[in-house]
Structures are given as structure tokens and as C-alpha cells.
Write a protein that binds this DNA or RNA. Structure first.
Lengths: 220, 220
DNA sequence: TAGATTGTTAATCGATTAACAATC
DNA sequence: TAGATTGTTAATCGATTAACAATC
């Protein structure tokens, strides 16, 4: 019945959501695919195709209602749900995520942070206290947890992820520089900062200069 | 002369680099596209196509030399270069990046961190001291800087990015929840954590269950 | 109604996969 | 040499763009 939505489309949805939120903040309550395409620098055709994967959100001759469209995309993304997040690893990044209050607004509630380091255990991070990794099993049994943010050492990540999956946690926000190799029923979102930096490095090294290639005759 | 490499290929290069580094750590000095494809869960055909965008790195009947291939990909990614990074915004994330020593190893040297908040200015972060944003111009004039990491409030990011570009910085590692809208000679790598979380949310909400669809007859 | 703009089909483009000849 | 595996061309697949009829 339901046709499978391509990952290319899913990857674009959060950006639409962001732009629609901005429009709403600016008090704009209506937009056409054409206007939106200019703002977002994509084709109007792609915008309409993307939205129509989920049924028609617009109206011929009018365009799209910003508030309605934003909410619909929010529902598709599951942003109407409340998620409980635990953070594994209380290093720099783990603590930064725990302190980052922006997520809570969106329905992501950080409810626990764990580490193995005795120097970190017991220290407070935001409104939480760092717990010993050995308490993880008990905590997960006694509290609802849907998402695990992995900010622990690369070598530990796949093992801990597997344990968490066995405890019934299916959502992984993976910041460790490794693939988790979990079965496909797990939902894994990787944030590989090192890879991101490498792509930046590539792009800096390959910035097209005016004095090169096709552009040689464009200026001057 | 040079044919344009597609972004799809570029996005995969860092992952190859990571796997090749792991193989090297394991003392494996030779690998075929077939073996690598099994480890990485991609097709051997894609691996060969990707590498051949840059000329042949392998040898028929033998495969690829891991060390050589890793170094070649590193060079393509520009990892043989040294980059100087400044961090704009000394919040949780900015401080986490400044403290993250893993980047240095790879040729990314964090040499400055800036903020406008008087409470933060002067405080030390790792081996650095938070500088007043007003000192930014002087600093950039007197020190080599190729990359700016933007961890400042969303509303400030595009303006600051434009200023930095005018100062001659072309590499942007953007953590702010906005597009920077810079001209195309800028190299921008976005790390949109909120969007990443939204994709995770979608994927959790759409985990295929055994009791659904095609899979209904597979188990039991 | 006429104008605007969507929803949707068809055409194009690009990326992935398959196949196999070249060659180590 | 024979076997293995690449480099590379051809076939397939999927995603993007264009076009336009439907309709508000």
C-alpha cells in the first residue's frame, strides 16, 4: 500500500521544515513552489514532487499554506512525538549535547548521561549528573528511552550500540568515527565530524578560481 | 581537461579513507574491491568506478595496496595540507570543538576562538583563550586562517560568514541552523544537528516491523 | 471568469550496477 | 601460464527536471 519514500526526499524534508519555520516567523502564511524554489535554491518541480510523495498539501492557483505545510512535514518527520535521549560518553561533545537546550524545544528530552571514567561520574552536566555506565541497564529498564547519542570512543561504540539495541533502544545518534554495524531494524543517524572536515578540506582545495577553466573569459 | 567529479563520489571518499585506515591498523596491506565491498556494504563495481575517477590505483589480478590507496585518497581530499581553524562562538559546541584534539592529528589546527560575551572573553579553552570578536579582523590579518568553524547563534552566522569571506577566508564549517548564502567561491560544509535529529526521528518512526508488509511471511 | 499554481505524467539526466576484455 | 581482479564500456535504475492538464 504505502509506497517507499526515497532517502533523497527524506534528507530534504528537514530543510523544508527549517525554511517553513523561518517563513512563519516572518509572518508569511502562504507560499508557492516557485517562490520557495528561489529562496531555497532548488527547482519548483522538485519541491512539488517531494511534497506529493505524501499527498497534496497545496491548492491550485493558491500555493501552500505555510503553517499547515510545516505541521504536515513535522508529522511526517515524527516531530509531534516526544523522544527520550540518553548520552553515552560525557566527554566534550557529550556534555555539549547535554547542555544544548535547543533540542528539548523540538521534543528531544535528554534524560541521562553515562561514562566509565570515575573522574566524570557524579559531576553535573546541565541539570543531569553523570552516571556510571554500569547503571545503564537499570536505568533503561526503569525509564523510557528511545534514542542513544553515542559520543564515546570509536572502539567502544559498536559494542555499546549492540547492548543498547538488545535493551530495546532502536534510535542511534552516532558521533563516533565508525559504522555501528547494527541490524536494519535499528535507526542510525551518523554525524561523522571527521568526514565532514575531510569534505571541507576537499572543497577548499578545489575551489574554482576565476583564472581557471571555463571562467577564464567570463571576467575582465 | 579535468573532468568534474560528482559530489556523490566525493561524499564517499572520507568513508573509504576511514576503512583503509582501519585496514592499515590491522596490518592488512592489500585488498580487492570485492573484499572491501563486503566490509563496507557497497558494490565492488561502485568502488572501482569511484577510484577510477582519479586514475587507476589498483593492479589487475592483485587488487589495491592499502597504504598507497589510503595516501592517494588522502591527497585527493587535501589531507596532506595544514589548515588553520578559528572557531566563532565559544558556547558548548565551540568549546567542545576547540578541545577536540582528534582534528589536530589530521592537519586541522585550531588557532583561535572568539565570542562577543564578556563572560566568556578571556576564559581559557584548551590551550587557547577566548578573544573578543572585535579582535577578529586584526587576528585574521596577522595569522594564517583557512577555515572558520561557525558555532554562533543562527541569526549571526550569515553576517559573520560574509565578513570572514571578505577577510579572505574561504572555508566554512557551519554548525548554525541556517544556510550561509555565500557566493560559490566559498567552500561550505554544513553540520546541521537539528536536521540530523529530524532524520533520526523519521527513521525511528518508520522502522520496518516484522509484522508489516512484505516481511509478514518471512519469520515464524 | 481569468490567472495562477498545483498535481502528475513524460522526458531527461545522472548515478549505479553489470559485464567483460585487458592485464598483472 | 592460469587465475584473479582491475579498468572501462554498456545496461539499468532512479532521481531530477520539464511540461501541461486539472482545478482552485
Amino acid at each position: 500500500m504505502e509506497k517507499k519514500i526515497s532517502t533523497a526526499v527524506i534528507k530534504r524534508l528537514p530543510r523544508y521544515y527549517r525554511y517553513l519555520s523561518e517563513l512563519l516567523d516572518q509572518g508569511i502564511d502562504r507560499i508557492s513552489s516557485g517562490e520557495l524554489s528561489r529562496k531555497m535554491n532548488v527547482t519548483a518541480s522538485q519541491i512539488r514532487q517531494d511534497f506529493n510523495n505524501f499527498g497534496g498539501f497545496g491548492q491550485q492557483g493558491y500555493g501552500y499554506n505555510v503553517d499547515y505545510l510545516k505541521n504536515e512535514i513535522g508529522k511526517i518527520l515524527g516531530l509531534d512525538k516526544q523522544y527520550h535521549v540518553i548520552i553515552l560518553g560525557a566527554g566534550n561533545l557529550g556534555r555539549a549535547l547535554a547542555n544544548y537546550t535547543g533540542f528539548i524545544k523540538r521534543g528531544f528530552l535528554v534524560c541521562g548521561i553515562f561514562d566509565v571514567d570515575p573522574d566524570k561520574i557524579g559531576k553535573s552536566v546541565g541539570s543531569l549528573r553523570v552516571q556510571d555506565m554500569s547503571e545503564l541497564g537499570t536505568f533503561v529498564r526503569e525509564n523510557p528511552v528511545e534514542i542513544a547519542a553515542l559520543t564515546l570512543p570509536t572502539s567502544k561504540a559498536p559494542g555499546v550500540a549492540k547492548e543498547l539495541l538488545d535493551m530495546g533502544i532502536y534510535g542511534f545518534w552516532n558521533f563516533a568515527a565508525t559504522d555501528l554495524h547494527l541490524p536494519e531494524e535499528a535507526a542510525v543517524e551518523n554525524v561523522h565530524l571527521a568526514e565532514s572536515l575531510m569534505r571541507l578540506s576537499y572543497n577548499i582545495a578545489n575551489i574554482p578560481h576565476e583564472s581557471e577553466g571555463d571562467k577564464i573569459n567570463e571576467k575582465e
